[in-house]
Write a protein that binds this DNA or RNA. Structure first.
Lengths: 239, 239
DNA sequence: ACAAAAGTGTTGAGAGTACACCCATGC
DNA sequence: GCATGGGTGTACTCTCAACACTTTTGT
């Protein structure tokens, strides 16, 4: 019986390793991007993988996720959305030993990233880190393709039910940029007028007095209103 | 850097213990109930807790959850809904050692439970297992109150967005029973007419030719249609 | 006949959708 | 002027929510 197994001396049990992996998304060039790192060790040496690492013995899980995020992107906790995604623990997912991975997913605004000189290309070749299209990633190590797929599914749900989408954009953005972000994540065309009127009614954004040149009429820049949102008025879907 | 830390010899790291806890819900006497077990060891000896146990080295997480479920309720995998809930891993949540708990939540139909003789009262006193009102549980061990709260929140979401609610009821049920199940979980009165008409349109249930006596006009018994449901047509809520 | 519970129908208000239209800027 | 993109309004449709109503049983 499980309860009796929970004795004081837990050390008699062999323990698995526990890691935290973070699927980091952003939007660049109107595309949904994910951050990947190149593995330097066996197994899967040279393959791309979702960044992650072992959980320190005195460190909380979320704490570890923030640490990974900071190590890979130099982005502080204030500037990101971070959420636990799922825990993957099939025996055999890592050939070395039993590894249980608590996966997180993170949304980072493109303006928070200070890209290295030479841009993305140079970064991905030299440093072994790079942004990849989330829908057409390279071959990934371990079961990371499954983790990425799961993260994309969750991101779509989140986008439809909450207002986290803003975390993917720079602090000030045009409404077209916001709509394009939604369209790329959802892979679906949206109606301009309806998108804007719903947005206006929700009170989630406020206009700034700055404009951005676009080739036609300049577009007003908007800002996300973090006070008014958080909870989207949710309606029961079933039954 | 995290990536370099992922070397072959993972044994150099101290490893946490990993357990799986399962929050098991059912509906009895028009109330949402949760299964709790009485702890027999230090710490928290004698307190009620969510059933759980260590993950075996060659056992998947979900596999472990099904095992717990079977051990506590003798219910097979076919007859339940099981879903991963969240992973709790704050250092210090267990005073003995670092324990990371992958929590699952399960929905079991009341007809699947073969209650011991003497009913609930006897069971909870003697065997150290019992069903408790989920909204007014006893004082729980460790951070299990938090886990239960989280499970209830998730259950409500699930009920509104999907058709899992049927898993809480016996195979054949009256529409009033179904509505009462929804009302207890959501803590909210629903309109009879609207509830029924939406349910009819969704095609989620089908009538049987059996009836149940109720004190007034006999109520028709319905059955869940597992083919037609699964995916509730979801509409974007934001923006 | 009356109470109790099952089961259906109606109607006004509000949300969603498609689409057309005006505005400001560069060439 | 005209192309390009920003920004708004309208009208039709459908769903939602409150409430009234009919039907079938037991006493």
């Amino acid at each position: 019986m499980a309860v009796t197994a929970r004795t004081y001396d837990a050390s008699q049990y062999e323990r698995p390793s526990v890691t935290v992996d973070v699927v980091i998304f952003t939007i660049l060039d109107s595309e949904l991007k994910v951050l990947l790192v190149k593995r330097k060790n066996w197994p899967c040496e040279g393959m791309w993988a979702i960044p992650g690492g072992f959980v320190d013995m005195n460190e909380g899980l979320e704490e570890a996720a923030y640490r990974e995020l900071r190590e890979e992107t130099s982005v502080s906790g204030q500037d990101v959305y971070l959420e636990q995604l799922y825990t993957f623990g099939n025996p055999g997912r890592d050939p070395r030993t039993r590894v249980i991975t608590v996966a997180y997913f993170a949304l980072v605004g493109a303006d928070k990233l200070h890209l290295p000189e030479g841009g993305l290309r140079a970064a991905s070749d030299a440093a072994g880190v790079g942004w990849f299209s989330a829908y057409t990633p390279p071959l990934l190590a371990f079961d990371h393709a499954e983790i990425l797929e799961y993260a994309i599914t969750r991101l779509r749900y989140k986008l439809e039910y909450t207002a986290v989408g803003f975390q993917l954009l720079p602090e000030r953005f045009t409404l077209r940029e916001l709509q394009e972000a939604y369209e790329t994540v959802l892979s679906e065309k949206l109606d301009k007028g309806n998108f804007r009127s719903k947005l206006r009614k929700s009170g989630a954004v406020e206009a700034t007095d700055a404009y951005q040149e676009t080739g036609g009429r300049p577009a007003r820049l908007y800002r996300f209103r973090d006070d008014a949102v958080a909870e989207i008025k949710t309606r029961r879907l079933f039954p």
